[in-house]
């Protein structure tokens, strides 16, 4: 079944041409499925812990939407630029690919920086997560996403080096493609975090 070639292999996008890359992409989808469950559990924990504030702040007190909006714009834009990078890759244009990937990384790093700043401010104003179940769940859910993004930034940076060293081979194309899946996935998770944690937290 593998690499069973319905169309001429050369007509397929670069990242799907090699049999192993094909397998890796499917495997990566399964990994993302598994990660969805991980985040679902953290969302469930957050939902249960939302009201468990003890002597600490409530969601409403903790959250200020201003910086979060900037973070959101940065991340959503980075998803768009990541899409542009893959579009450039499909056209085999290494220059724009590297440029858009670079922009994506910068936006991602900016997002992480702002989030760290947000967390530091929270701790300064309200104290550590030791204070309440709510704070623990908040920092863990948002922080797990932030950790994923940080890893993504490292990964993307390594891929830039890889692209520069090895050029746009099918293997490199596949790695870029799985990276882009990961990156869009984190964007979607963020949309949920923004809605469930920030918007809902500010409203109720």
């Amino acid at each position: 079944m593998i690499g069973q070639v319905q169309t001429d292999a050369r007509e397929r996008p670069l990242e799907f041409r090699d049999r192993r890359d094909n397998l890796a992409i499917l495997g990566f989808w399964f990994f993302l499925g598994s990660d969805v469950v991980l985040f679902s559990c953290l969302f469930a924990v957050y939902a249960v812990f939302q009201g468990r504030v003890a002597a600490g702040p409530t969601p409403r007190q903790l959250i200020s939407l201003g910086p979060v909006l900037v973070e959101t714009v940065a991340l959503l834009t980075s998803s768009f630029t990541c899409g542009l990078a893959i579009a450039a890759m499909r056209r085999g244009r290494t220059g724009p690919l590297a440029a858009w990937l670079g922009v994506t990384m910068l936006l991602g790093a900016g997002f992480v920086g702002m989030e760290i700043h947000e967390f530091a401010t929270d701790v300064r104003l309200f104290g550590t997560w030791h204070q309440s179940g709510f704070l623990s769940a908040f920092f863990t859910l948002v922080g797990t996403h932030g950790g994923h993004v940080s890893f993504g930034v490292l990964w993307g940076a390594a891929l830039l080096v890889l692209l520069w060293r090895q050029g746009l081979t099918p293997r490199v194309a596949r790695r870029l493609y799985t990276f882009s899946l990961y990156w869009h996935f984190l964007d979607i998770v963020w949309v949920f975090i923004f809605t469930v944690v920030y918007l809902a937290g500010k409203i109720t």
């Binding site: 924990v45 249960v48 812990f49 468990r52 504030v53 003890a54 600490g56 550590t128 997560w129 030791h130 204070q131 309440s132 179940g133 709510f134 704070l135 623990s136 769940a137 920092f139 863990t140």
Partner: peptide
């Protein structure tokens, strides 16, 4: 592990853990 090593309050008795 976060509770034990990094002082969060998920499953503690106090601090509204559960």
């Amino acid at each position: 592990m976060l509770d034990r090593l990094f002082g969060s309050s998920f499953f503690t008795i106090g601090h509204a853990g559960m």
